[in-house]
Design a protein around this nucleic acid. Structure first.
Length: 943
RNA sequence: GCCCGGGUGGUGGAAUGGCAGACACGGAGGAUUCAAAAUCCUUUGCCCUCACGGGCGUGCGGGUUCAAAUCCCGCCCCGGGCACCA
């Protein structure tokens, strides 16, 4: 160990002490402990019973901490991916050290399009590719030292898993929503009710008069999973239909940004709308952020109002939904969606006399006008429709009657009225609705105000509060009262009723893809669906040579690839009347299916009798504090606000209604982690250049001598700004990466990655190491003597602050406080007393488990730090005997005084006023008031 | 347009009515070194001052209070969500 070696190659090696905490030592420590932890199963959380059960009664409180499980991408991880995983790991480790039985694991949401695309390009089976990707991702995650119970890991593509996804589908299929009791019930109970005549069938026909096929058709209409003929989102480029939630506002596919067309097709639907109110109400009981709750509320889109019937001159009655029944007296037109089913019946052969020319769309007859307009509308994309704010439409040539005053108003079709919302028909009240105002303006329609605007109002439609005018019996009433009176009148006179409408639509549940769960459904020659018996599950995916969806266009029909598995499409089952051959359902489930219940399978992953054992489910999913229960902490990205989180809540509620789970909600507390952003650089053409090769010089950025501009964005391939965890392991080790990611800022905030700052976190670990370990021998330098009083107090204050920060997921603050304690140890020339050293190591345990475990062992402990107790602050040591407190004069700090911490107000005031500097500044001033805040400050108010 | 977040030094951030800028990165200076890296020490919001000290300061304007980054009112800017939803 001397520096006089002549060979430069050996020099660094000679200078470097053998036990300096550097990347190489970190690597040895981390790999070693990961192996030992794995061998000893330290992260295994016992169940109350079953194969993962613990013979010894475990009376620790349970805690279920979960990440949103990832799709196993083939491109590997960058440092942005594991941010949330590290956060949950730190929290789970902290809770384990405070005496909780913590369930923390990770699985894979492995069905989905990329594996199928990969298969189409390479010919490799999606399962092979998926398993390769999972193995690779698992390796990257393992290196981070995440404390997962590996026994509980699942992938949604496991046959043993999707068997139960299919089973849950069957529970939903074999249920109906009983509005009277407000919950799902088995379909057999509905059959009973029909049988006894206690319930009316959908069209009022007597059950006993129906033949068996008619009975089946009747029951099928009530199921929570049903085949519906509805306009769906057909995406030819993906060869599949999509859920509303998967289509962007621009009318393109969420994935891939391909055009999506609305077409009626027969598809599997989930009756999520039956749960709209409960999904809405139960949000109040969840510990989620307001922004996510708001997004879900908006998506469900509940509006209260009235349904009103308008009689028409040709005969059919038009039903309208409105949130403003109080404005009925202002109705001067009726506007239907162009595809409204009554339009044809309302359209006469010739224009009525005196039809204004501008209403006719230049057409010779009403039906020509309607046909022309419909064609014109269908040629617009959704985006063009939205951008085109000028109102268009045509008169259909008929009138209807406003029920409250028998005013005859013209009926139009216009594309600003959407078929998908309400009844697809709008009573047009231009005075009180800006869209109707704009329409009335285009077509010269009368405008009648029904709410008195303030005298200074100079806008067009008036949507604000005010007394009703021009409204007969409503005149003078304010909006809420006027609405109530009008609805009362409508109900009394039989012209309408109070109604609630939702934006939420039923969930379109089938996809024309290969790599998804097959439906456990077959068809007999009636064409009606039949459940595959539970004991015949799983229905396994067949082997295929050609996985691709057929290249398709807007006009063609979707063609499920499973239809090409000739040996599979027909199957023999005994469904209670002997064995027959049936045709299989060829669609597969959407990717969301598997993620709707994976948290339940974590609890009891190997159960072959049930999807989860009820005792085990109750143990992990019940909240002893009386909350809704479910996962105690669920961390993931905000992008799942309305997709996964709404679907999973829906499934959970169905399972709850059917007594398969013990609580009404799956996720008690939801936390959205932020994203790691990174600088990205563009050249003058706007092309992204490799961020790693960009150099900074006095505030400007250069790539190969040419100037580039800097922006910040999500880390990834497209911005060429990815940093991989592997690069960080090589340079610093996993503990440093964990520490840096947690130190960058609060978990829920986006934050910019700065590789050059990582070294700060590495230095902290080096200093901790050096304070406790002799870098030359590797022996600990701690001493067994008790710490000086001041140090002991500091360490207890640190414990208090760190524990508090850990509880609140403020890991950045926890790290700052530990740093302060360690800085104090560095400053002192004394060796570190064991008591303080051990506290500090234990506090570091959740954040940087490997180095903490290593130090713990080097200090002579034989038990693992993973299950050691987190230190507890002694309240008596949190208060110092004396305090330094500031003295303000008129709110500005002018001096500080040192006082006994138990000084009373009088003593504090006395001490402050007798302070030399304060006396000096107060001379010649009149003291008006002295504010004393015990232990905080003294403020002297002078004139 | 509507609904949520957010705006604090050169940078990430701390403080949720009581000392603004903890902790860290970066910068400056120093020690060590033949030299460098690493490490260690000092310093670092802005302005005035040799200094002691003083003034200003949490997006902008106003208010409440002995005291405001924090609470209230009005605006500006940034990010996200929804959007012809009757």
């Amino acid at each position: 160990m001397n520096a006089s070696s002549s060979s430069p190659a050996n020099e660094t090696e000679d200078l470097q002490p053998a036990f300096r905490y550097d990347a190489a030592l970190a690597d040895r420590i981390e790999i070693g402990w990961q192996r030992r932890w794995s061998e000893q199963g330290v992260y295994e959380a016992p169940n109350p019973s079953g194969p993962l059960g613990n013979q010894d009664a475990d009376d620790r409180p349970k805690l279920f901490v979960m990440d949103m499980f990832p799709y196993p991408s083939g491109s590997g991880l960058h440092v942005g991916h594991p941010l949330g995983y590290i956060g949950t790991d730190v929290f789970a480790r902290y809770k384990r050290m405070t005496g909780h039985n913590v369930l923390h694991t990770m699985g894979y949401d492995a069905f989905g399009l990329p594996a199928e695309e990969h298969a189409r390009q390479t010919g490799e089976h999606p399962r092979v590719n998926t398993e390769t990707n999972i193995a690779n991702m698992q390796r990257q995650l393992d290196r981070l030292g995440l404390g997962h119970d590996k026994r509980r890991s699942i992938a949604t593509t496991d046959v043993a898993y999707y068997r139960w996804t299919q089973w849950i589908f069957l529970q939903i299929f074999q249920s109906w929503y009983d509005v009277e009791s407000g919950r799902a019930r088995p379909i057999a109970e509905l059959e009973d009710l029909f049988e006894k005549g206690d319930r009316l069938t959908s069209d009022g026909r007597a059950w006993l008069e129906m033949d068996s096929t008619e009975k089946r058709r009747e029951l099928d209409q009530w199921r929570l999973a049903y085949l519906g003929e509805a306009p769906v989102n057909w995406c030819p480029a993906l060869g599949t239909v999509l859920a509303n939630e998967e289509v962007t506002a621009e009318g393109r596919s969420d994935r891939g940004n391909y055009p999506v067309f609305r077409r009626p097709m027969k598809q599997w639907m989930m009756r999520i709308t039956a749960y709209a109110d409960r999904l809405l109400e139960d949000l109040d009981r969840l510990d989620w952020t307001d922004s996510i709750k708001t997004m879900q509320r908006n998506w469900i889109g509940r509006s209260e109002g009235a349904q009103i019937s308008f009689a028409t001159s040709p005969g059919p009655t038009i039903e309208v939904f409105t949130t403003r029944p109080d404005t009925l007296f202002g109705t001067t037109a009726m506007v239907l969606a162009p595809e409204h089913p009554l339009v044809d019946a309302l359209t006469p052969d010739v224009w009525p006399e005196n039809t204004p020319h501008q209403w006719t769309g230049d057409a010779a007859t009403p039906s020509e006008a309607v046909a022309n307009y419909r064609r014109q509308v269908s040629e617009l994309t959704d985006l063009e429709r939205q951008e085109n704010q000028t109102k268009t439409g045509v008169y259909v040539g008929a009138h209807c009657s406003v029920p409250v005053n028998d005013l005859q108003v013209p009926i139009f079709i216009a594309d600003y009225v959407l078929m998908g919302y309400g009844t697809g028909a709008v009573m047009s009240v231009p005075g009180e609705d800006q869209r109707d105002w704009d329409f009335a303006n285009e077509f010269g329609i009368d405008i009648i105000r029904t709410v008195q605007p303030p005298s200074d109002f100079d806008g067009e439609a008036y949507v604000g509060e005010g007394p009703a005018i021009n409204s007969d019996f409503l005149n003078g009433l304010y909006i809420e009262d006027a609405k109530r009176s009008m609805i009362d009148w409508l109900e009394r006179e039989g012209h309408g009723a109070r109604t609630v409408t939702y934006k939420l639509r039923d969930w379109l549940f089938s996809r024309q893809r290969y790599w998804g769960e097959p439906f456990p459904i077959v068809y007999d020659d009636t064409g009606l669906a039949l459940a595959v018996p539970e004991d015949q599950l799983p229905v396994e995916l067949p082997e295929l040579i050609d996985w691709a969806p057929r290249a398709l266009d807007e006009e063609s029909d979707p063609e499920p690839p499973l239809g090409r598995a000739n040996d599979w499409v027909e199957a023999n089952y005994d469904l209670g009347n002997g064995e027959f051959s049936y045709k299989r359902e060829l669609n597969t489930m959407p990717q969301w299916a598997g993620s709707c219940w994976y948290y339940l399978r974590y609890l009891d992953p190997s159960n072959e009798e049930r999807f989860v054992d009820p005792v085990i489910e109750k143990y992990w999913m019940t909240d002893s504090a009386g909350g809704v229960g479910g996962v105690d902490l669920y961390v993931g990205g905000v992008e799942h606000a309305v997709l996964h989180l709404l679907y999973a809540r829906f499934w959970h509620k169905v399972l709850y209604d059917l007594n398969h789970v013990s609580g009404p909600e799956p996720f008690q507390r939801l936390y959205n982690q932020g994203y790691i952003q990174a600088a990205a650089y563009q050249d003058e053409r706007g092309v992204y250049v490799e961020a790693e090769e960009v150099e900074e010089s006095s505030g400007e950025y250069f790539y190969k001598q040419s100037r580039v501009t800097r922006t910040f964005g999500k880390m990834g391939k497209s911005l060429k700004n990815s940093i991989t965890p592997d690069e960080m392991y090589t340079a610093y080790g996993a503990d440093t990466l964990r520490l840096y990611e947690m130190f960058m800022g609060p978990l829920d905030q986006d934050r910019p990655w700065e590789t050059k700052s990582v070294v700060g976190s590495h230095r902290l670990l080096q200093r901790v190491w050096r304070n406790l370990i002799d870098e030359n021998t590797g022996e600990t330098t701690v001493v067994d003597s008790p710490p000086p009083d001041a140090l002991r107090r500091l360490s207890h204050r640190t414990i208090e602050a760190v524990a508090d920060a850990m509880e609140g997921l403020r890991f950045n603050s926890a790290i700052a406080r530990i740093t302060e304690l360690n800085n104090e140890l560095s400053r002192s020339a004394e060796r570190v007393p064991r008591e303080v050293a051990e506290s500090m190591i234990l506090m570091l345990g959740p954040l940087v488990p490997h180095i903490a475990e290593e130090l713990w062992e080097r200090l002579g402990n034989t038990n693992s730090i993973v299950h050691s107790r987190f230190p507890e602050a002694d309240p008596e040591l949190l208060v110092d005997e004396s305090l330094e407190i500031p003295v303000q004069i008129n709110g500005k700090v002018r001096s500080r005084i040192v006082v006994a911490s138990d000084s009373n107000d009088e003593a504090l005031q006395e001490a402050a006023l007798s302070d030399g500097r304060v006396k000096e500044l107060l001379s010649g001033k009149e003291i008006r008031k002295v504010i004393v805040i015990p232990k905080k400050l003294v403020n002297v108010v002078v004139s």
